[in-house]
Amino acid sequence: MMSFIKSRSLLYLALILLTGLIACDKESEKEVLEPKFESFTLRPEFNSGLNEVVVGDRSGIEIKLTVPYNVSLNNLVVSFNYVGVKVEVNGVEQISNVTANDFSQPVTYTVFGINSEPREYTVTITKKLPQLPQVYVEVEGRQEYRDDEKETYKKITLKVMDPDNLYTSTTEFNAIGEMKGRGNSTWYGVPKKPYRIKLDEKSSLLSMSTDKNWALLANFYDKTLLRNLTAFEISKIVEMPWTPKSVSVDYYLKIEFEIGRQKNVFCEWHFIIFLVDMPLFSAPENHF
């Protein structure tokens, strides 16, 4: 009898051990999916102001992106691929190409996996520094102005770019007209010359008044590039009449010139310069 009981006890013990081993095997067979982002981008088709895809720079659990200055951070839609079962921000499930978030402050994304701890990513989106408007002038024949050609009008094509829409809602403006030199000591013998532009049709440039006559002030002798701008601002503050409006721009003059024996070299002279609205007027009597 004792032998029978002992045999049954051993049998039960063996069954218990076998059941435990099977349970351990099943536990080890459970799927484990480590959560992570595989890509994180901003696409122009889902975000106004973008002209190209912005790819996130991923470093560990930090993701950083930089967008143009004119792009609002308040309502950006992210496109992402991930490993896991879902992605959330503050408990709200995120859908790639659909869900918008406010990125004026860093945003924490949580990726959930299977049988693993969720992973949190901190996403920071910043703006690039604003770009100055750009003025491109191409002279007919692409000939450089000589000192003795100050009063000679030459036909030009003009392109004004405002890439970050600092002054206008349109990024590009094109026109044709004429251009000659201006100034005296600021014209002769200096590599950076001022010009007077006369457009064929009245136009508003960079939200200044509508006119045909414009000036490009080179400010070659002003190393700060602030003297004229400061004077114009003070004049505007004290409400002096006929204070011209002005905008600082990057100026490109397209010309051809010779270097040694090599001819027809296409070149761009690049300056920071003032584009000034110069309407024609007659001063009233006794006005100085």
Results as ranks from 00 to 15, higher is better:
272 I>M: 10
214 W>T: 01
257 F>M: 06
83 V>W: 02
243 T>E: 12
247 V>Q: 07
185 S>E: 13
91 G>R: 05
193 K>P: 09
29 E>L: 11
98 V>E: 10
82 Y>T: 02
152 T>S: 13
246 S>M: 11
235 S>C: 10
28 S>R: 14
210 T>L: 00
264 N>M: 07
70 N>H: 15
39 S>W: 02
170 T>D: 12
242 W>P: 04
86 K>D: 06
125 I>K: 08
202 K>P: 02
159 K>F: 01
13 L>E: 11
37 F>Y: 06
163 P>T: 06
103 F>K: 07
117 E>F: 13
244 P>C: 07
3 S>A: 12
149 E>M: 13
142 R>Y: 05
205 L>P: 02
181 G>I: 01
1 M>D: 08
82 Y>D: 03
97 N>Y: 10
198 K>A: 08
107 V>K: 02
132 L>M: 09
147 D>P: 07
6 K>A: 11
202 K>S: 09
193 K>C: 04
47 N>K: 03
116 S>D: 15
48 S>Q: 12
52 E>T: 13
190 V>F: 07
17 L>V: 15
156 I>V: 10
73 L>D: 03
125 I>W: 07
144 E>L: 13
50 L>W: 06
225 L>M: 07
97 N>E: 12
250 D>L: 14
266 F>V: 13
110 T>R: 14
263 K>E: 10
84 G>K: 02
175 A>C: 06
90 N>F: 05
6 K>P: 00
76 L>P: 03
81 N>I: 05
20 G>N: 09
232 F>P: 03
222 D>L: 00
11 L>G: 06
155 K>S: 09
32 V>L: 06
228 N>M: 09
25 D>Y: 14
109 Y>E: 04
168 T>A: 05
132 L>C: 03
126 T>Q: 11
250 D>Y: 12
115 N>T: 08
112 F>D: 07
235 S>H: 05
75 N>Y: 00
8 R>P: 01
40 F>S: 00
192 K>Q: 14
185 S>Y: 12
17 L>H: 10
135 V>Y: 00
50 L>V: 05
240 M>K: 15
238 V>M: 02
102 D>T: 07
75 N>H: 08
272 I>R: 15
236 K>V: 01
60 G>S: 04
229 L>P: 04
154 K>G: 00
286 N>S: 08
277 D>S: 14
20 G>C: 13
140 E>I: 05
34 E>Y: 15
134 Q>P: 01
136 Y>V: 08
76 L>G: 03
120 E>V: 12
158 L>H: 00
144 E>T: 15
111 V>T: 08
212 K>C: 03
172 E>C: 12
123 V>Q: 08
213 N>V: 11
140 E>Q: 09
15 L>P: 07
133 P>L: 06
122 T>F: 07
166 L>R: 05
42 L>R: 03
190 V>K: 10
172 E>V: 15
131 Q>G: 02
205 L>I: 01
43 R>F: 07
199 L>K: 05
164 D>G: 04
